[in-house]
Design a protein around this nucleic acid. Sequence first.
RNA 1: GGCCCCAUCGUCUAGAGGCCUAGGACACAGCCCUUUCAAGGCUGGGACCGGAGUUCGAAUCUCCGUGGGGUCACCA
Length: 519
Amino acid sequence: MRTRFAPSPTGYLHIGGVRTALFNWLLARRHGGQFILRIDDTDDSRNRADAVKPIIDGFAWLGMTWDEGPTPDASGESTGPHAPYFQGQRNDQYEAAAMRLLAEGKAYPDYTTPEQQAAARKQADLARKPYVHRGTNRDTAAEENVRQYTAAPAPLLLKVELGQSVKFDDAVKGKQDISTDTIRDPMLLRGPDASGLCRAVYNFATVVDDSDFDITHVVRAIEHLSNTPTQILMYQALGATPPTFGHIPLVNYNGNKMSKRNLPPLSNDEIAKFKTCGWTDDEIKGREDLNIATVAYYREIGYLPEALINYLCRLGWSMDGESEFIPLDTLIANFSLERVTDAPGNYDAKKLFWLQGEYMKLIPPAEKLERCLPFLRRAKLIDDAPSDDVRAKLLRVIEASGDRIKLFSDVLAFAAPLLKDEIEYDPKAREKAFKDPAAKELLREFAEVLGTCEPFDASSTDKALHDFAAAKGIKPNALVTPVRIAVTGSGVGFGLFDTLAILGKEASRKRIAVTLAAV
RNA sequence: GGCCCCAUCGUCUAGAGGCCUAGGACACAGCCCUUUCAAGGCUGGGACCGGAGUUCGAAUCUCCGUGGGGUCACCA
C-alpha cells in the first residue's frame, strides 16, 4: 500500500490538511506501506523554500514521517525512487504524457477563444442547461492534431468518450456512477505562457504523479469527489489503473469552513499568554500563521503533538463507541476508512485541550522540565544554560504543579513568581486579602513563627500554620491566602507549603516583610 | 441554477430493523473532597430535521420536503 499527501506550499500547515495527511499516514503505517509527501507547486513560485519549510517542520514536529518526498531541510531537493517530488520540477513528465495522448488521438488542442467559450457558457445558462465544454479539434485526426499543435500550441484537452459511465467504489462514500456526457473534456496542459511553457493543470499533474509513484490509495477531502471521474478517465487514457479513492468530510469551525476569514483573531488571553512567553507585540502581529487552524499555533503555545494527532484523528473517525483517548500505536493498529464518518465535523478547541491534559499527565516531571525549558528561555526567565540549582528548583516547581501544567507554556505562570526577585502583585487579590487590618497583624506574627520552623519544609510549615491558626482561633484559610499573596503576589498557584519550601526560609520571610511594608 | 455529498444531545460520536426508556466523551450545572487554582469522585439537564411510506416493529430501509456543504477555472 502506498499513500500520499500533496499540499500546495502556502507557508503554513493547516490542521484540516494534517487530518487528511494523518489518515493517509495511518493507513500506510498500519499496512506496512509507504507514505509519500509531494509538494503541489505547479505554479513554481520563487519563494518555494520559505513556503515549504513550515509544512515540513510541521510534519516533523508531529512525528509524521514520510518515506519519499522533499528532504527535511526544505531545500527543494527530494529523496526517493521517483524524485523529484515537487510538481514544479516535473513538468517534463506531464508534457511527455500529454504528448503521448495527443499522438494516440486521446487528446487534442483546443482553439476555442475565451470569448467563444464565455458565449457558449452564457447560452447554456440561459437554456438552464449545464455547460459541458468540448473543444474545436475534438474530431480531428491524431496526425493532424499533432501537426497543428506543433505549429500552434494551445490548451490540450482530453477527449472524453460520450455515452459511457464512470464507475468507482469510494472507500468512504460508496459506489459512484457518473455519465461521461456530463464531464467536460478536461484540460491537460495549459496554453503556452509568456515564455512558451505549457504547464500541466492540477488534475492531470496529480494523475500522472499518482500513477508514476504507484499510489494505491488516495484519501483526500470530499471537495475532490467531483474531480474523481475526470481523473479516472485520465488514468484510463494513460493505460494506468486508478487507485482506490476515499473522500473524507471536511473539518468545519462553527459550521463554517475553517478558513482564516471565519476564524477568530487571537483572544486577549492568548495574546497575553504569548507575551508572557516572551513574544513582543510585533512578533505576534508578524506571525500571520498564528491561529487555531495551523500546526504552528499549537507548537508555539506548548501543545503535545500526540494530543493534536489523537484529536484530529477522532474528528471524523471513531474506533468504537467510547474510546476518546487513543494512543498512536492503537491508532495505527486500528485505523480504517470504513469507520470514517459521512458528515462534516466541527473543530472543538475544548476537547483538544482536554486531550492535551490527558497526554500531559503521562509525561514524567524530568521530561516535562526538558520540554518546558525552551519556553522558560524565550521568556528570559532562565539563561540558555541554567545552573543545576535552577534546574533543581524548576523540577520542584514542576512536581508541585502536577496536573496544573496543561500546556508547556503554563510553566511560566508557576515558575515566574518563584524565579523573579520582584513580587508582581495581583492588585485585586492583594486588596481583598488585606482588606481586614487584622490580616496584616496575623501575617506579621506568622512570619515570626516561620522563622522557628526547622527543617523548613512543606510539612513543618503546614503544621506551623495550622497550629498557629488554632491558637489564634481562626480558620487556617484566613491565613493561607495572605501568605500566598505575600510570597507570590498571586491568589492562585500550587500548594502554599510547597511554595514556601521551594522558596526557602530566608526568601519566604523576606517576601513577607516586603509585602507587609507595601500594604 | 445543474450535478454531487450530508443530516443523532451545544460539540465529537456509538448505532448495519427489535439489544434504544438512544450509549460514551467534551462542554455545561450542582454536590463532595480541598488551602486558592488544577486534578479527582458523584449527580443532573440535554438529541434521532419534518412528513409520508414499507414492516408485527424504523434512529436504522424508500420517497418527498427542509436545511447545510461541495463542485461547475488556463486555482490547487
